[in-house]
Design a protein around this nucleic acid. Sequence first.
DNA 1: GTCTATACACAGATAGAC
DNA 2: GTCTATCTGTGTATAGAC
Lengths: 235, 235
Amino acid sequence: MDDLSNFQWFSQKVTLSRQDICRDVYKHHRKAIKIKKEKTLVRNLMRIFDAALKISNERGFQAMTMRSLSRETGMSMGGLYAYFSGKEDLLEMLLRTGRITIKQILEEQVNQATDPESKLRSAIRAHLFLSEVMQPWFYFSYMEARRLGYAEKKKSMTAEIETEKLFARIIEEGMNRGVFVVRDSLLTASVIKAMVQDWYVKRWKYAKRKVSVDRYASFVVECVESFCLHMGDKK
Amino acid sequence: MDDLSNFQWFSQKVTLSRQDICRDVYKHHRKAIKIKKEKTLVRNLMRIFDAALKISNERGFQAMTMRSLSRETGMSMGGLYAYFSGKEDLLEMLLRTGRITIKQILEEQVNQATDPESKLRSAIRAHLFLSEVMQPWFYFSYMEARRLGYAEKKKSMTAEIETEKLFARIIEEGMNRGVFVVRDSLLTASVIKAMVQDWYVKRWKYAKRKVSVDRYASFVVECVESFCLHMGDKK
DNA sequence: GTCTATACACAGATAGAC
DNA sequence: GTCTATCTGTGTATAGAC
């Protein structure tokens, strides 16, 4: 799929799914949400999410006060509590929406390719482009996940393991078919994930060096293929 | 150097340098520290540092209250303020001690090897073993660095860039000598760093899978060499 | 050198007017 | 549906006893 070579496609997908997400949030947090008109809910919830991500990614979620959220959204503190029952609740919403979006979009991408080589390439590129479009969310989730309550922590650990398994399965398939060198597939998946994560965690670094997603993606693919195929030359 | 194959050597080094570190801390924070006896200072400062790292790595530095630090150290809140003038000050001390220890120890390791291949191997292993011994500090520094004041943030960014340049220089030397494939040396250094960081950031994952430092180090070296030398087979 | 008690600031959350 | 005003809990920091 040619669209994978840039992230426009992902960007559209993410924007379009915003309505669905809000409906889902409403379903799961009905008790807490006092807003009845869907249009108002969608508009303000998005404002709140964007503001919360912005503030949290600068100083941390715990350091984000309701007052600063009020300032950033332009809504009053009292008004904010019509959209969630408390900070914990907001956190849960934020994490949930991200997980759902990612799942929806990645599922559309899965198994578009057939051979292990192009599957691996697609998986790496898809992850990178998605994390580029939703960078604030990925960064937030990465940084805050491990300091949450037990339940949320577990969820994010499971998500991490699942992503790795996705890569590991592709690699194992390649090994079984004899196109990839036989090595520890889980460790290989881990280092791939580490490289993908570096893109959204250290974005300031790559921005400063003017490295684009496309270039980074190509580099990671080259690196992984060289390891899996033991080819040093460009393909 | 054979000692590099396990991290006992690093462990000893770190323990031995504790006294020096305290002397350095005392020098830079003289105004804030009200303790006169060196023995008391060293003992309690270490208690405080260990406790602060433990709490912060669970819930974040910002979420660590003086009350929780008091509980963890067994010291009273009033007593704690004899060792630093406030949370910000404690933070600065913590980061400083880590940077100094790392610098001292890594400098001893630099240029033990001569050819680019073994230099690269040594650099990777040294970083991994050091981060293993000082895991709480590395994790802390990684997680808290980006939400500090401007000055401290700058310092930790510089440290990150410097580490990358260390790797990049070795790789460039290898390219110039014709033993490494010519590629983007900075991007190569970045992905190496990403793999090394994954070790101390995702330690829970590797612990669960019973992957040892030694095994992880060997794997990363294999991965990097395969990319730089375009050899897929074991060396 | 270490403790207890407390000052003071600011956080999250809500009630009730509009 | 949104605002202002305010309650209550908890945070950092210090003064002064031991």
